[in-house]
Design a protein around this nucleic acid. Structure first.
Length: 403
DNA sequence: GTCAATTCACATGAAAGAGACCACGGTCTAGTG
DNA sequence: CTAGACCGTGGTCTCTTTCATGTGAATTGACGA
């Protein structure tokens, strides 16, 4: 029945002139051929890593800067070049890039080492072995022959937050036991205070060298966006001022280019779906909303039930009383809903943690305050969320089978 | 009126338990020659 | 005799509970002017 209509639709879709020429240039993992405004940093990285070509261990390196300031990009660019030279000269250089946040597979010491061992073709079960065992497997495989290993740990702060800094210590220490090979660690973090709380031993060995990535300013963002847009879009696909507005927006958000590019891409997708011939200003606004909305929906639907019930309690209470809420009353309400849904209520201790997780995720504003004689608690308010509350509430009701 | 002590209602930390998942080695069992 | 099924042990991981300790200002109450 609908088949015929659909073939027609797809044919029409293909026949339509796309505003995209090469959409890849807007994907988050795209590496452009030239990188703007990061010459200084790239040169530094190259300088620090260059000794590896003489088979000497490069210094460990720590890079920091806000999100979307080109840390990962610059690193990948430099290491790719480095690797190219190394392969040409048949040097035993290996570079491993691990994003500690992206993959759930690397958020514990065991998993990280297992992941590393897998890069060398060792099959490591996802669980069941003692961590020591995995270390020694890894150790043996890299020390078999001479090798310079550069290990890039992106979002290293996430890793340390979850597993503690002991593992970094272990990793740096491993060098002294290796006979043939050497490991260098490149840590990338968007938290500049990250090293403050590290064990001094780890700190000094990790940041033998440091590179700071300052945020881009609006003009720089504009140039970068322009570069990407030229590749990504066909001619006249962008209305005048779109790029300017996009970069202004990103500059406001501490110079995060990644966001600017995402915004541009989503805006273009919206305009394509709306069958307009070019990306207009209003698409940017819609894109901004959509990005936020999707983020919230994604968070909500992927969180466990307990989290959802807690959020549901907060939303219900908040729609009833538009002022600040406190942990105690939320917990009481939460217990009630648990009964309704047949969930076993968690302790207040846990719910308290859940609430603070929500704060970190940006769903709510939770602030610890003291009400003097009346105790200490979290003051919870809801930010103006991109998705209207009743809609969220209904979504949660569906998720939880609440009536 | 002033000032230190008290008190509340949680926050925050540390440790440990439960239950799921998994590897490994040993033992048992059934099928094969 | 051997491959595969099955079990017990010991390991990780995540989520949670339990127990313990911390905290900051409103309130209280003693004190002095």
């Amino acid at each position: 029945m609908a088949q015929k209509g659909l073939t027609g639709f797809f044919e029409q879709f293909l026949a339509k002139k796309s505003i995209f020429k090469n959409k890849k240039a807007l994907q988050p993992n795209y590496t452009p051929e030239t990188i703007f405004h990061r010459d200084e940093q790239i040169k530094q990285i190259a300088n620090i890593l260059a000794p590896s070509l003489r088979l000497e261990k490069p210094s460990n390196l720590f890079m920091y800067g806000q999100t979307g300031t080109g840390k990962t990009l610059s690193t990948q660019y430099t290491t790719n070049q480095l690797l190219e030279t190394a392969t040409q000269k048949a040097l035993p250089l290996k570079i491993i890039y691990i994003n500690c946040k992206l993959k759930k597979a690397t958020d514990t010491e065991y998993r990280l080492i297992a992941q590393l061992a897998r890069y060398f073709g060792k099959e490591i079960p996802s669980t069941g072995l003692p961590t020591e065992e995995v270390y020694s497997i890894f150790f043996n495989v890299i020390d078999k022959e001479k090798l310079i290993l550069i290990l890039i740990l992106d979002e290293i702060d996430q890793l340390v937050k979850k597993t503690g800094d002991e593992m970094l210590y272990n990793l740096t220490r491993i060098n002294s036991e290796l006979k043939n090979s050497q490991i260098s660690i490149i840590g990338i973090s968007n938290d500049s205070h990250f090293t403050d709380n590290l064990d001094p031993r780890v700190k000094s060995s990790l940041s033998e060298e440091e590179i700071l990535f300052p945020p881009y300013n609006a003009i720089q963002i504009k140039e970068i966006l322009k570069q990407r847009a030229d590749i990504a879009f066909s001619e006249n696909a962008l209305e005048d001022g779109v790029i300017e507005k996009c970069s202004a927006y990103a500059a406001r958000e501490h110079g995060d280019v990644r966001r600017a590019i995402e915004l541009l891409r989503v805006a273009a997708e919206i305009s394509e779906r709306n069958e307009t011939s070019s990306v207009k200003m209003e698409h940017l606004d819609m894109a901004e909303e959509k990005i936020e909305h999707d983020k919230v929906l994604d968070i909500i639907t992927t969180q466990p039930k307990q989290f959802q019930v807690t959020l549901y309690a907060i939303i219900t209470l908040y729609t009833k009383r538009k002022d600040m809420l406190f942990t105690g009353e939320i917990y009481e309400l939460y217990k009630g809903y648990c009964l309704q849904t047949g969930l076993r209520p968690l302790t207040q201790r846990r719910v308290s943690d859940i609430i603070s997780e929500m704060d970190t995720l940006g769903l709510i504003n939770a602030q610890v305050i003291s009400k003097g004689r009346y105790g200490r608690t979290r003051k919870i308010t809801m930010q103006p969320l991109p998705s209207p509350l009743p809609k969220l509430k209904r979504l949660l009701e569906e998720q939880l089978d609440l009536v």
